[in-house]
Amino acid sequence: MTTEERILNRSSELFAQFGINVVRTDDISTDLGISKKTFYKYFVSKEQLVVRVMEDMLERSSSEMDQLVNSSENPIEQTCALWDLITAFRKKHNPNFIRDMQRSYARAWELVENFRAGLVKDVLIQTLKNGIGKNFYRQDLNKEVVATLWLDLSSQENQIPGSDEEIKNLFIRGLLTAEGFRSYACLCNHNS
Rank of each mutant, 00 (worst) to 15 (best):
V23I: 08
E59K: 08
A88Y: 14
T79Q: 09
L119H: 07
R103I: 15
S11I: 01
L119N: 00
L149C: 14
D84M: 10
M65C: 06
N9C: 05
N114K: 14
I76L: 11
E4G: 03
W150S: 00
E55F: 01
P161Y: 02
P75V: 04
E73K: 09
G33H: 00
R173H: 13
Q156S: 14
G118Q: 12
S61W: 09
A147G: 12
L82Q: 03
L124D: 01
V53Y: 00
V69M: 09
L175W: 10
V23N: 01
D122H: 04
F97S: 04
T148E: 06
E165F: 07
L153A: 05
L58T: 13
D100A: 08
K92V: 15
M1G: 08
G174N: 15
L49N: 03
E179K: 11
S155V: 10
L8T: 00
I132H: 06
S163A: 11
S71W: 06
F39G: 10
A147H: 01
C186D: 15
R24M: 14
N74L: 14
N130K: 09
I172Y: 08
N96R: 13
V123S: 10
C186A: 15
V51D: 01
S183H: 08
L32F: 09
E166D: 11
H190G: 15
D31A: 08
S62D: 13
S155K: 02
E13S: 06
V112C: 05
Y40A: 15
S183A: 14
